[in-house]
């Protein structure tokens, strides 16, 4: 990542306020289709409105309900649980795999792997949802594999079991994101000076110490990027859940994105949907902004 605004130069191209004409189209589109709806979301969240008839001012009632209604609140908790699968697993697994294959990063296998591991990033999440609902069904491949290795007792309809549905959705997300994280981290590792490793080996460091004293610290920025991207994906998840479980069974996989959609377009509680939307936006910011500070401090 380049470090912009490193130091202001004294001689700048003089365009003055007229230069805003260049920014105008972007600003107009952004203001019309993002900032305006965003401020309307805040406004709607203070009303009780069914989207058709007249609305009624309710102040902060919708937010109060958000904190007291266990169903609404649990959707937020589910989103945080998904972080485990969308972020933690891909990042840890990615680190492990990248560190292990660092030595063969230039081989032909690794070139092929680069293409293959990217496939989940290229397809629509909807398609990932369809594929995996099928794999995780009671007669799907996952259960077949389990039976084949003698774990037949564990087989179940993974997306239909109250205990496993959310983790199963998490696995789909992990599948989508693990390749991206691995490749990002691998790219970061290729920038580490090989001399560092050679020196460590001469000192008699094993792979484990090598990993903790060289690899991990040098990857601070890449790890920060992985975590940021995946945390946003977890908190704002919609496509996969919409296709794989629709929030069921028994609300076990209800996430804020889907709940907003249901509230706004099926239950027609526009105010409540907007309050949840505001909460979601704030949550994402609250999780992501501190991460930036962390990685920035590390990289300077």
């Amino acid at each position: 990542m380049p470090a912009p605004i490193a130091g202001r130069r004294t001689r700048r191209p003089r365009a003055g306020w007229l230069g805003w004409l260049f920014a105008a189209p972007a600003v107009i589109m952004y203001a019309t289709f993002v900032l305006r709806p965003l401020s309307l979301t805040v406004q709607y969240s203070l009303y009780d409105w069914n989207g058709i008839g007249p609305s009624r001012w309710v102040g902060l009632d919708n937010y109060r309900r958000l904190l007291t209604d266990s169903e609404l609140f649990s959707s937020i908790l589910h989103a945080f649980e998904l972080i485990l699968f969308f972020s933690l697993i891909p990042v840890l697994l990615g680190l492990f795999v990248a560190a292990t294959i660092r030595g063969i990063a230039q081989s032909r296998l690794a070139t092929v792997a680069r293409t293959v591991l990217f496939l989940p990033q290229v397809i629509p999440l909807v398609a990932a949802g369809i594929m995996w609902s099928w794999l995780l069904s009671s007669t799907g491949v996952v259960n077949e594999v389990l039976s084949a290795v003698g774990l037949g007792g564990l087989t179940r309809a993974w997306l239909g079991d109250l205990g496993t549905a959310l983790p199963a959705v998490g696995v789909i997300g992990a599948w989508v994101l693990v390749g991206l994280c691995t490749l990002l981290l691998l790219a970061g590792m290729s920038k580490i000076d090989p001399g560092l490793y050679e020196a460590a080996r001469l000192d008699g460091a094993g792979p484990v110490r090598e990993f903790f004293s060289i690899t991990l610290p040098s990857l601070r920025q890449e790890i920060g990027v992985c975590v940021t991207v995946t945390v946003i994906a977890a908190l704002a998840s919609f496509d996969i859940v919409y296709i794989a479980t629709q929030g069921g069974p028994g609300n076990a996989t209800m996430v804020p994105g889907l709940e907003i959609y249901y509230l706004a377009f099926s239950e027609r509680e526009i105010g409540m949907a907007s309050a949840l939307a505001v909460a979601l936006v704030v949550l994402v910011l609250a999780c992501v902004l501190p991460l930036q500070r962390l990685t920035r401090d590390g990289s300077r």
Binding site: R36, L38, S39, V42, Y44, Y47, W49, N50, S55
Partner: peptide, 13 residues
């Protein structure tokens, strides 16, 4: 963004 918020203040519906 506060100004943007004030831009639309009639009640919805």
């Amino acid at each position: 963004s506060l100004f943007a918020g004030l831009a639309a203040c009639s009640a919805p519906g």
